[in-house]
Nucleic acid binder design. Structure first.
Lengths: 114, 114
DNA sequence: TAATTATTTCGATAATCGTCGAATTATCGT
DNA sequence: ACGATAATTCGACGATTATCGAAATAATTA
């Protein structure tokens, strides 16, 4: 159990989100909530070929940002909010000036959540 | 003046951070604060060849995450905390479940800052 | 079992990314 | 002006990424 994210995982997550289709895809799943969406529905919404979508889905799964489960014929994908939260925490703690005060307010706000 | 970040800028910023050397580099500049660091010092700290570092620096500059200014012979780079803050805001607002409540606490905390 | 639906995997291809060393630009000191 | 220092730009190369269509896998229905 790793409650915190290391640099490698962070890079993996950032890379997974750093693509037009995948960012849109992740946003879609976040909007949708825990119920998730079937791959086919996602492909249609994004206007991407199924085989291409599969590629992008795997990137997000591998980065831990989304989960997959089979339900009869379909495979349902859902956003993993915990992973996203850990990513945000890493960025806040490591990339938002703890010592100097530039990003301190944001940092302080995040700390309150823990 | 765009106080908010659109998807394209977000992808650019995410991609810029999604690399071992660049994430480390950005963290280094954030730690360093407004004073910034010269390219040569950064190259030495990261153990990267100057020409390779230049490549990575340009990615971060292009994404707006760092700034550069020439001071005599050296070029000083510094983290742009505003840009990082906008990236965090975009992610919080678009990738952290506004409607459904999964990531709502984090979202609420961020809203208070605005 | 055979046909259908939902999705992934594979193979080929084009495009982008990252690294290196050599050449180039800019600035400073003498 | 000349040599030294600091950094970037360029060109080549290998590695990774993204896309597409065809084939394969899994589950349902007739």
């Amino acid at each position: 159990m790793d409650a915190t994210m290391d640099a490698k995982q962070t890079i993996s997550a950032l890379g997974a989100l750093a693509h037009e289709n995948r960012l849109q895809l992740f946003r879609l799943l976040v909007q949708r909530g825990p119920e998730g969406l079937a791959a086919g529905v996602i492909a249609e919404r994004l206007g991407v070929l199924p085989s291409s979508l599969s590629f992008h889905l795997q990137q997000l799964v591998h980065a831990g940002l989304i989960t997959q489960k089979r339900v009869s014929r379909q495979i349902i994908y859902a956003a993993n909010c915990d992973a996203m939260g850990r990513l945000m925490a890493y960025l806040t703690e490591n990339c938002c000036a703890e010592a100097s005060g530039a990003c301190a307010p944001a940092d302080a706000a995040w700390r309150k959540l823990a």
